[in-house]
Simulated scan of single mutants.
Amino acid sequence: MTLRITEGLAASVPALEEAMRVFRGPDLPDEDGLRWLWPAGVMAAALWDHETWDVLAARHVRLARESGQATAVPLALTQRVAVDVFAGEPADAEALVEEITTVSEAIGSPPPLYGALLVTAWRGREAEGAALRRAVAAEAASRGEGKVLTVGAWAMALLANSLGRYEEALAAVPAAGEDRPADVGAAPWALVEYIEAAVRSCAPGRAAAVLRRLTEVTVPAGTGWALGVHARSQALTPQEAQIVRLVREGLTNPEIGARLFISPRTVEWHLRKTFGKLGITSRKQLQRSGATGER
């Protein structure tokens, strides 16, 4: 974990993969599992290794339930929520959030809010998400947990992007645009949301700069999840060629925007850039030309 933070993902992959093998193995004592499976799961996520993350989270939940330590259950379930969300199982994740609330009330402890925050963002529940983010901010201030704020910011960016409010998404994760290494946890996921928001806000230059940082925390992992996230983010900046192709097919700006999930204003912005590159002034000229709009 220290290598990941100080030297970056590429330098830490061999050691982290060895640690993951130990945590997945049959010889891990239950006591060590209860103590270390939470950070081990965080590092599995940092490796973009969903399969290992799934195994570790399930083991953590089982050990927490079997140990008789009720206070360990909500945290273990919270990690399971995140695993289920990324697996595309929001209904399962939501059921776990309800269990977290029930167990926390039974032991007289405030429930961890990470899981509920993820589910509301994924479900697009704006009002509920706003209330949760306020609660998260208050909890972070009282406990000094900056990581909680990162999760809240990422969840807000995810929700804003899903609603087409890209400027809000950019504002939610301003640190993602800073030229510094991406932290563990939700920080790399925030980079993904920042790239999408920047592209769809007519700021592809900002997206390209952050893509370089995302590359550093995805490509070295080499998993399908990591490479898929990287490829998807990379595919968002070269939109001009797609727009030119759709103009040639006779689509209007609103129709192109709907096809590419961008606003008509963004389409117009790309077309103005393309016209300038090609030295033309109209859509008819563009339709007659053989150029792609890329240089």
Rank of each mutant, 00 (worst) to 15 (best):
T102F: 08
V173L: 10
V85W: 04
D92P: 04
V73G: 09
A169E: 03
L227N: 14
L286Y: 07
W53Q: 05
P174H: 01
A46K: 06
L170S: 03
I107G: 11
R212Y: 15
P29N: 01
R21P: 06
R143Y: 10
L96Q: 05
V148W: 14
R35F: 09
T102G: 12
A175F: 14
R288L: 11
S263E: 07
P174E: 00
L63S: 12
F261D: 14
E126A: 04
V267R: 05
L113V: 11
R200Q: 03
R133I: 13
M156T: 07
K147E: 14
G279I: 05
A160Q: 02
E66G: 00
Q285V: 15
G88E: 04
H60N: 10
G41P: 05
L96P: 01
A82S: 13
R134L: 07
K273N: 13
A208N: 12
T274R: 05
L170E: 07
L278Y: 08
L227Q: 12
L96N: 09
L236H: 14
S109H: 15
A175W: 14
P111L: 02
A182R: 03
R248F: 07
W38R: 04
M20S: 05
A137T: 13
R259V: 04
V73K: 05
R35S: 09
G185K: 03
M156R: 10
F261S: 09
G279D: 08
Y194T: 03
A57H: 03
R265N: 14
